[in-house]
Deep mutational scan, measured.
Amino acid sequence: STAGKIFRAMYDYMAADADEVSFKDGDAIINVQAIDEGWMYGTVQRTGRTGMLPANYVEAI
Rank of each mutant, 00 (worst) to 15 (best):
W39R: 11
I29L: 10
E37H: 14
A28W: 12
M40A: 06
N56R: 14
W39F: 07
R46Q: 05
M10G: 01
A16L: 13
W39K: 14
G4L: 07
D17H: 06
G42D: 03
I29C: 01
F23S: 08
E59M: 06
Y57E: 07
M52W: 11
E20H: 13
V21G: 04
Q45M: 10
R49G: 07
I35Q: 07
M40P: 01
D27K: 06
N31K: 06
Y41G: 05
Y11N: 15
P54K: 05
A55T: 07
G26S: 01
Y41T: 09
W39E: 08
G38S: 14
G48H: 10
Y11K: 15
D25T: 15
R49D: 05
R46D: 01
N56C: 09
N31M: 08
D19T: 13
I6D: 08
A28L: 15
A16M: 14
I61R: 11
T2I: 10
Y11V: 10
D36E: 10
I30R: 04
M10W: 03
P54V: 02
Y13R: 05
G4R: 08
A60G: 09
V21W: 00
D27G: 03
W39G: 07
D27Q: 02
Y57I: 06
A16T: 13
N31P: 06
V32P: 05
A60M: 12
I61C: 08
A55N: 09
N31E: 08
V32R: 08
T47H: 00
G38L: 11
G48V: 02
V44K: 04
I30E: 04
A3N: 13
I30V: 11
D17T: 05
V21A: 05
I30A: 09
W39I: 03
V58H: 07
D12N: 09
I30C: 08
N56M: 09
A55M: 04
Y41H: 11
T47E: 05
T43M: 06
E20P: 03
T47W: 00
G26C: 00
N56T: 13
I61S: 12
D25P: 10
I35Y: 05
P54C: 01
V21S: 03
I35M: 14
N56P: 08
E37V: 12
G51W: 03
K5C: 11
D19F: 06
D17Y: 06
D36C: 12
Q33D: 07
A18T: 15
Y57A: 14
G51C: 02
E20Y: 03
D27M: 00
A60P: 15
E59S: 12
Y41I: 11
Q33F: 11
E20S: 10
Y57C: 11
A16V: 12
E37T: 07
G48M: 00
A3D: 10
E59V: 07
S22H: 03
G48C: 05
E59D: 01
Y11E: 07
A34N: 13
I35C: 12
K24P: 03
G48Y: 03
G4S: 10
A18Q: 13
G26K: 04
F7T: 06
K5M: 15
D25R: 15
A28S: 11
G48Q: 10
A16E: 13
F7G: 04
S22I: 05
D19V: 04
A18P: 09
M52Q: 08
M14K: 12
I61D: 12
Q45E: 14
A16F: 10
M10P: 00
A9F: 00
V44Y: 00
A34F: 10
G38H: 15
D36A: 10
Q45L: 06
Y41R: 13
S22D: 08
V58T: 00
I35A: 11
N56L: 05
K5W: 11
I30Y: 10
G48T: 02
Y13K: 04
I61L: 13
I35T: 09
G4V: 08
A16W: 05
M40S: 04
V21L: 06
V44I: 10
V58D: 07
G48W: 03
S1A: 15
D17W: 00
F7K: 08
Q33P: 01
Y57F: 11
A15N: 06
G51K: 04
D27Y: 15
D25C: 15
G42Y: 06
A55E: 06
P54F: 00
A3L: 05
G38D: 14
A34E: 15
I6S: 08
V32G: 05
Y41K: 14
Y57H: 08
A28I: 15
K5L: 12
Y13M: 01
